[in-house]
């Protein structure tokens, strides 16, 4: 396959960026999208040019490091992560626009790499449980109903890649935050911090400069892990409940 790539190039966080055009030849349909970019980078290095910087780590769709907007879609046309997207999803001769996540809370560091530490700070604000350390507790000590366990797991699937923010017209982190809040709030282990968790994580989300939800639904469409849009509804419900509970204390 022969492809024309238009890639966002930006020297550093302060520099102005622009789209640069590259031609790549000899692309196999079995290559992953990142392998295709590796091919481009090898050519650039041989030519003595600066390779395109992009985030990647596990390359098996579970770490959440890769982050590319391909032809205006976060993680490209398939419902998966960029690393698990294969070139067979494109046609020979296609022109592909490759851009970084766009959100003021995710500043570009270089080329296609953005700083997603805002997500870490949201987790720090409440995405944990208070549990005694030491030997593992007896497995049956805390019964969890199967539907609750399934619900928690559905939200726990979030890998924090930030595709929801990239896809949202408001640059909102509602889907990410709601996945993390619901994951712990439906479990008995998360109960002691049920109220403070949602209040603090939403407050941190606002603090980081993410936008708000207007129910456009782009986040849930882009999410490679299929976190549902109703996750946001559940978080709203938890937040309203928490404000009432905390006000009574």
């Amino acid at each position: 396959m022969k492809l024309t790539l238009r890639v966002w190039r930006q020297r550093n966080a302060d520099a102005d960026g622009a789209m640069s055009t590259y031609e790549v030849d000899g692309v196999s349909p079995d290559m992953s999208f990142l392998e295709m970019l590796d091919t481009l980078n090898e050519e650039l290095i041989l030519k003595g040019e600066d390779p395109v910087a992009f985030d990647h780590d596990c390359r098996e769709g579970i770490c959440g490091a890769c982050s590319l907007v391909i032809n205006g879609e976060a993680h490209g046309p398939e419902r998966t992560t960029t690393c698990q997207l294969h070139m067979r999803s494109f046609r020979d001769g296609d022109t592909l626009d490759i851009e970084p996540w766009r959100a003021s809370a995710f500043p570009v560091i270089k080329d296609l790499v953005v700083d997603r530490s805002a997500f870490d700070r949201i987790i720090q604000a409440g995405g944990y449980i208070t549990a005694p350390t030491g030997s593992a507790p007896e497995a049956h000590a805390t019964p969890v109903p199967k539907p609750d366990a399934d619900l928690a797991f559905e939200h726990a699937e979030c890998i924090g890649c930030g595709a929801c923010v990239a896809a949202c017209p408001n640059g909102a982190a509602m889907l990410f935050t709601s996945a993390k809040v619901n994951h712990l709030n439906v479990l008995p282990q998360g109960a002691p911090e049920r109220e403070t968790r949602v209040l603090d994580m939403v407050a941190q989300m606002d603090e980081e400069g993410f936008g708000g939800c207007t129910l456009a639904g782009e986040c849930a469409t882009a999410c490679p892990k299929g976190i549902p849009l109703t996750s946001i509804t559940s978080m709203n419900k938890e937040w309203l409940r928490a404000t009432r509970k905390v006000a009574k204390r």
């Binding site: 907007v69 205006g72 626009d97 017209p169 640059g171 400069g209 936008g211 708000g212």
Partner: peptide
């Protein structure tokens, strides 16, 4: 808040 959160648009709309 929403407009500030997404200051730069995507080239490919």
């Amino acid at each position: 808040r929403d407009l500030r959160a997404r200051p730069s648009k995507y080239v490919h709309r």
